[in-house]
């Protein structure tokens, strides 16, 4: 399969009870790009995000994540119900049981996809450094014996983890707040810390859910720079949901527009700006596109 697409979404369908939140959503995300998912309120952006990151189990369709040199089916690792055929094939049965027992959204992250949340979810009672250390859980020495005896190898792993912590604190400009509680930080700082925390899991693609919400213009500008750093210096693909059209148009290589649970347009910023369907979705058919580009 192609390695140029880090994420492929095919025929994604999501139903909540009788409500069809997503209806046959298709898009691919190019490796190393900054892509944006936009759309009016209630279009299903966050639902797509939650399906991609494994927090919702999609009702139908396929999400393929090619990262870390292998392909992961996001829906499969969440644990699917048993199929009749499983009972005749022990291998399939055991695999399905494994995912049913130990599967879940954490496997999506381990496969190389990290995310942030619309309403920030930090470990508020823990320090900034600790927040970033938790994110490296899968990369440090987790042996109980080594940790209790405080062995050389354990100390080395912890030191490396701390170095990574301070590297990322440098990137998001939070070194001075390293030993404060995450809950005490200002809103903008919390948003930045959350991005740093996602990056500490060493993802190939990071999904940012409204990263600029609630930021002032200068903070938004800093954020734009940071996202470029992620893409250019760390080869991380960035997918974001955002309402700040100025920022989206400025930063994105590729934009997917969602409305009423369907993709209505895909393409580069210039295509999207002039796409009549998009303008209609945002403003109704008659209005000009002034406000969209604002």
């Amino acid at each position: 399969m192609s390695q140029e697409h880090v994420l492929k979404v095919e025929n994604l369908v999501m139903h909540f009870g009788g409500i069809k939140a997503l209806n046959d959503v298709n898009f691919d995300i190019q490796r190393g790009s900054v892509s944006a998912l936009i759309g009016p309120n209630g279009a299903g952006k966050t639902t797509v995000f939650n399906c991609l990151t494994g927090f919702y189990k999609a009702t139908g369709g396929k999400i393929t994540l090619s990262a870390g040199g292998k392909e992961t089916s996001v829906i499969k690792v969440l644990g699917e119900p048993f199929q009749p055929a499983d009972f005749f094939s022990p291998v399939a049965f055991v695999r399905r049981l494994k995912y049913k027992m130990f599967g879940g959204s954490h496997l999506v992250n381990r496969a190389g996809l990290a995310r942030t949340f619309q309403n920030i979810r930090l470990f508020k009672e823990m320090s900034v450094v600790e927040n970033l250390l938790v994110a490296q859980h899968m990369r440090v020495n987790r042996s109980l014996i080594a940790g209790i005896l405080n062995t050389k190898a354990y100390q080395k792993a912890e030191e490396e983890a701390l170095e990574r912590v301070f590297y990322w604190l440098g990137v998001v400009d939070l070194v001075d707040s390293a030993n404060r509680l995450a809950g005490e930080l200002s809103y903008g700082q919390q948003r930045r810390l959350e991005i740093a925390r996602a990056m500490c899991t060493n993802p190939e693609i990071v999904c940012l859910d409204e990263p600029a919400a609630g930021l002032n213009p200068s903070e938004t500008e800093a954020l734009t720079k940071m996202i470029r750093v992620l893409r250019d210096e760390h080869n991380t693909t960035v997918l974001l949901i955002e309402h700040d059209m100025g920022m989206v148009m400025d930063i994105s290589d590729y934009i997917v527009v969602l409305d009423h649970g369907e993709v209505i347009a895909k393409g580069g910023p210039d295509d999207i700006k002039n796409n009549p369907k998009v303008i209609a979705a945002y403003l109704g058919a008659e209005e000009d596109d002034e406000e969209v580009t604002l």
Partner: peptide
């Protein structure tokens, strides 16, 4: 402790 603070965030960071 992270799990006590926020389980969903923990899962998003790869913790089972």
């Amino acid at each position: 402790e992270a799990l006590r603070e926020d389980e969903i965030a923990c899962r998003s960071l790869g913790l089972n």
